[in-house]
Design a protein around this nucleic acid. Structure first.
Lengths: 251, 251
DNA sequence: CGTAACTTTGATTAGTATCAAAAATGGTGG
DNA sequence: CCACCATTTTTGATACTAATCAAAGTTACG
């Protein structure tokens, strides 16, 4: 029995990544942590700061971003319940990007030294966490492709496909519907476009009969065509455990 | 005494990342491997294949890339002597991108199972390697920003700054000069632009007095202005050991 | 119920892509 | 060592995608 359902979710995910022993599991559960609730838009860590805690997202959404010298923001990834938010920073001396709350969110903050000790004494836990960060990397890579080589319609379609699959794999969405707690400006910052253009492209996706929207809820009408327009293949997500059923990804 | 200077380079880098013991070092040196020489453009691994070896680049350059459904290529990163080419793939079931030789190159191929055993029995080595992959991630993130939010001139300037600093940190360049073994088409694929436009922007960088070029050699004339045009800060490279002197990065 | 944040629409512009072709370079075999 | 061919670089003309600017609607929220 875990303190919070998100912790059970993490442990189940780790178990698909490395053959953890009971001792490993006990060590994870024994990690010290402090609860915290953050309002939407609160910063978990800012670029340039030394990482002190590694946050596990217990509820809500978060995102990583950087801001250019011109003041333009680029969102680097979006994170959902059950994911670690700071492993990308925790083993480096200084954060190279910002991590911010997308919605109000609850986190469990694990002090970085405790985390380092854990992975040193429990190599398999370290491997599971390492793999987690490698999958983050795989998603970063796909975002480079998305922003670098796809036109606006594909870019947005691709993003919507990724969210659909990740939310479904995490058990946070079903029936081809999900709540996407991002403004059009944030979608623009995630795709390297402007908010105005996102608005038009979102319309276009509706006109083409691929999705419908009701406020921030997205419903996928034609998954196959959305995938095709978005040039989306799920391979880079490396979802191996609970294979999604509704949206049946091409491997 | 190591078999190859690149191995000494790797070990020195690892030592800055985790406090390795003599046993750790011995275990690294005891890794089984096979030498191989690959011609330019040869594939080390293709998207969709299961990773069997993890290659250490002993000499030459390599790059990662993906190809969209439309057939457009996006280069994800460029790698130089002394770097591991496959850790991003080795702990996952299937490669999600291609790794290809940019120049003729020599590699030491380490079988993945041996690598997995090493990191399981030597957690500090695992941590050093993990940090290596986290720095790869940091570079991926910066590339998302570069391609997503900077105009063509900045993008290319940024790329040239990154290469300058990484090559210098690796002891492969000095005096603000380096050999960049990429065609303009490859530069285009790295920046999400077209080869024609790269040609024009490269000229513009020359006209502005920031660089000069002689074939594939780049000479940086005005580092400060190049950095400023490229909106470049070295933080994301997490170069902590041998701090570069000539190009003195802003921390 | 008033105000700030967000979405939507229209008109215009800017930055890159595209297309086409010539010039330069590099590598190879004779 | 030269001649040839493929690759790469360069240049010019034109087209198009998405940005920018501006303003009106709409929604959420205290």
């Amino acid at each position: 029995m875990d303190i919070h359902p998100a912790i059970g979710r993490v442990i189940r995910r780790f178990e698909t990544r490395a053959p953890l022993t009971d001792l490993d599991l006990a060590a994870i559960r024994a990690l010290p942590f402090t609860y915290r609730t953050l309002d939407a838009a609160a910063y978990l860590i800012r670029e340039g700061e030394p990482p002190e805690n590694c946050a596990l997202l217990l509820s809500g959404f978060a995102y990583r971003h950087k801001v250019t010298g011109e003041g333009e923001r680029q969102i680097l990834s979006v994170h959902m319940t059950g994911e670690f938010l700071d492993m990308q920073n925790s083993f480096l001396d200084v954060a190279d990007h910002n991590v911010q709350a997308l919605t109000r969110m609850e986190v469990a903050l694990v002090p970085v030294p405790a985390l380092r000790r854990l992975v040193e004494t429990h190599p398999l836990v370290g491997r599971a966490m390492w793999i987690d960060t490698l999958i983050d990397s795989a998603i970063f890579r796909e975002w480079i492709v998305n922003v670098g080589r796809r036109d606006a319609l594909s870019r947005l379609a691709h993003l919507l496909c990724e969210f659909a699959l990740r939310l479904e794999a995490a058990g946070l969405a079903a029936d081809r519907r999900y709540e996407l707690p991002m403004t059009q400006e944030q979608l623009a910052d995630a795709t390297g476009l402007t908010a105005v253009h996102i608005n038009r492209v979102l319309k276009e996706l509706g006109r083409l009969g691929l999705i419908t929207r009701d406020k921030r809820a997205v419903e996928i009408i034609d998954w196959d065509r959305l995938r095709s327009v978005g040039d989306f293949s799920a391979r880079y997500l490396h979802i191996d455990g609970g294979t999604p059923t509704v949206l049946a990804p091409a491997r």
